[in-house]
Every structure is written in structure tokens, then in C-alpha cells.
Design a protein around this nucleic acid. Structure first.
Lengths: 218, 218
DNA sequence: CTCCAGATGACAGGAAGCTGACAGGAGCGG
DNA sequence: CCGCTCCTGTCAGCTTCCTGTCATCTGGAG
């Protein structure tokens, strides 16, 4: 079982590498984001372990480029402890699981095996709200089992809202998260996008909280 | 903090239950998988502790059914020592952490607290005064469970007063907090706003302290 | 009883959000 | 390299309802 480890901290890199080899994995190690991306793109791995703070190309960007290219390589990201933002962004970018630092080697290995197994065709990482199910691995939304055709922006929007269900998400936060550089104040791009998503999904799913933002109830 | 303990071994059930209560948790105990699932589905817990070998419904099945229904209740599973398979399957099914038997009570409690803390991003941050509950994640106020429709200004006002309950808040401070540039002396905007909020909430909630400001009693 | 901070009802200007139409442009197949 | 399709941001028009102001009451303190 071959895995790709991308981590710039030499201490962690060595420790994790050793532990993974002891657990029976073949490990390729990279320290640079861009080189790591290239390896994942051109070689075959059972999974990748990815630090988020990397030289040359940020971990999130690495995942996104893999995903955009159709790579469904399972990815486990290492995040700073308690960084809710990183976690959500990571999962939203297409990561399969996250592990807050510092972590136990045992747990890393267990989770790594879990995502590998999951990618072998078993359970998917899903979030459900009523009839509507978000599958973050397939980057797809289904309603009563029927897939809903969504554009990339539309998917990112609904995914972010579902990952934050039960919480009011301000328009500003959505705009930042969708990372479209274009959004200016005095643009109603978010409203338009929400409208488009609403037309494709059950009506009451996305609540408007006038003056606050949007929310999906639990 | 209320937790759900599902365990069929009476010895472990009693020991764990006692330890949890000593640690300040309120514990609901179930021995049957299906009943446990039902409880988790219909009650509100800060977390669940789940044995994997259960009568009627296997622990893994319980987690999966919760997850499929969108329940993101943190789950700690108890596994047989060294059982890689169980660990991996547990995490794969959506468990947040696992603990191999036999275990130290201290460790169980530490890990339980950890997963509850980790899920705190999901948890509702609420403040209650009598029947009136402020939920800052949903940015909403409910009275006896019924949501009260509030405009942004109205919500900010009641939220600020509830966050400062038991203290007299001067009008000036309220005005500054609401950050409306418009407020000048000789404006009665605050009085008007308070009036609007009062009409939507239980009568005695906001006290007027003539000459000083407004207050919500504890 | 008098006075004045606070309460209330009415109102108008405008902020926030929704929608349909449109066009530039990215992505893709040929 | 061309042409087609789909994505996505912009715009104008419209609706809803928020919010500060004003004029007028009210009631408690002294």
C-alpha cells in the first residue's frame, strides 16, 4: 500500500514516515506543495497525507487541483488543533478526513486506513438534511437518491451551508469562501447564486435570515 | 452535560455510569442497541458512548443510522483491545474516537470531553432567561420553543441585553453597540426599538430603569 | 400636581433580497 | 483552431419590510 506524505516539518515528516512504514505502508515523502501535487497527479497512491501550511503551494490548493483534475485519491489533512475554519475548508476542498495536531500515531494510522477503505467503495462521507444528501467524496448532492446537477459554484455554496448546518452563515463569509475574486460590495452575485441553487433543491432548504445571512436548519 | 451510554455489560455500564456522574455528566443508560439508537435519535445529548457488541442492533449500525439521518452527535466507541478492524470500521461508520478495552476511567472522561469540545463548533451557544432562549449560532430567539421573528437591530438589542443579563445597560452603551451611525442625542430610536422588541417578547423581560437604562434580570 | 424620561402609533425613505434577462468567457468536443 | 455549451457575474425592476423621525401620550418621581 503506497501513500504520499507531504509535510514540511522535518520532525513530523520523519516520525510519521517511520510509523507508516512500520505499519506496512510504502511511503513517498515530499516537502514542497507543488512537487507533492505533481507526484499525486502522476503516480498512483492509496492515499495522501497533507499538511496545510506548505511552501510554494498551499495544501488546500493541492487538493483542489487534484479534485479539479478528477483525482479521487483519499486525502487526510493535518490541521492546527481546533482550527474549525481549516477543517471546514479542508473538507470542502475535497479532503476525506482531518486530524488535529498534535495527534497519536495510532490514530493517524487508523484514520488513514479508514479513508482508504472508504475509497474502496464503502460508505461515503455524507451529510443529510431531510431528503437532501451531500456526498463530499463524490462532490454531489442527491434528493431522494436522485443526483442534482449543480455547477461548481453551486456545489460549493450548498456544501458550505450543509457543512455549517444549524448556523447562520453571513453573506460576507459565503463570498469569501467561494473565493471568487470578483465579489465586490454592491454585487448581488450571492443572491443570484442562492436563487439558482434553490431552484434545483427542495424549497425550504435554504432559509434567508434577512440582514444576517443564510442558514440550513438541522 | 447530558450523555448517552449504550453498553450491555452490566459491570462496565455501572462503573462507567458512576464515573461519568462523578465527573459531572448527566447519564442516560441503555443496554439495547435499538433502544439506544432511538434515544439518540429523539433526545439531545452532548455525546454518546457506544459499545460495539450490542443486542438487537450492532453499534456500527447505530452510528450509521444516526449519520444517515444527519445526526452529528459526537460518538465514542468502546472496542476490544487491539481490534484494528473494529477501530477502522467504527471511524469509517462515523465515530469520532475509539477507546480500546480495558481502559482507564480517566482516559475515557478525557476523550469524551475532547470529542465534545471538538464538536463545540456544532453546538448551539444559548442563553436562557425564563422561557426565552437566545441562540447565537442560529441568531434567533425562541419563546417556549417558538422562534420569534426579529429584525437585525431587534436581535442585536435583545442579544446584547441577554449577554449582559443582570446588569443595567445605559441607553448610550446600547446605541454605541448597535453601531447605528444615525443615533444622536434627541433621537428616541432606542426607545422605539425597545418598544418593538417588547411587543414580540414576554412582557416583563426587559425592565426599564428610569434614568439609567434597561436591564434583563437573571 | 407637575415635569420629563420613556412609550407608542403612524409614516416615509431606503436597504436587503429576489428574479429574469443578458453577455463575456471558460471549458470542451471536433 | 473553431464553434458550441454552460457557467457566472452584472444589471434593472420589483417587493418586502426595516428603521429613524415626528407628534403625541403616559406614568412615576418628587
Amino acid at each position: 500500500m503506497r501513500v504520499l506524505l507531504i509535510e514540511d516539518d522535518s520532525r513530523i515528516r520523519r516520525d510519521v514516515g517511520t510509523a507508516l512504514e512500520a505499519a506496512g505502508f510504502v511511503v513517498d515523502t515530499e516537502t514542497d506543495g507543488e512537487v507533492g501535487w505533481y507526484m499525486g497527479e502522476n503516480e498512483t497512491y492509496a492515499a495522501a497525507i497533507l499538511d496545510l501550511g506548505l511552501p510554494h503551494m498551499d495544501g488546500l490548493a493541492v487538493i483542489k487541483r487534484w479534485r479539479n483534475a478528477g483525482r479521487d485519491l483519499p486525502v487526510l489533512i493535518l490541521t492546527a488543533r481546533g482550527s474549525w475554519t481549516e477543517r471546514v475548508e479542508g473538507i470542502n476542498a475535497g479532503a476525506d478526513d482531518y486530524l488535529p495536531k498534535p495527534f497519536q500515531m495510532d490514530e493517524l494510522i487508523a484514520r488513514l486506513r479508514a479513508i482508504i477503505r472508504r475509497s474502496a467503495g464503502h460508505a461515503a462521507a455524507t451529510i443529510a438534511v431531510g431528503d437532501t444528501v451531500l456526498d463530499t467524496r463524490q462532490m454531489r448532492v442527491t434528493v431522494r437518491g436522485v443526483p442534482v446537477p449543480l455547477s461548481p459554484q453551486e456545489y460549493r455554496l450548498i456544501a458550505y451551508l450543509m457543512l455549517n448546518k444549524g448556523r447562520v452563515v453571513p453573506q460576507q463569509e459565503l463570498a469569501e469562501h467561494l473565493q471568487s475574486v470578483h465579489f465586490e460590495r454592491a454585487s448581488n452575485a450571492i443572491e443570484v447564486l442562492v436563487g439558482r441553487v434553490r431552484r434545483k433543491l427542495p424549497d425550504a432548504l435554504i432559509e434567508t435570515r434577512r440582514g444576517f445571512g443564510y442558514m440550513i436548519a438541522e
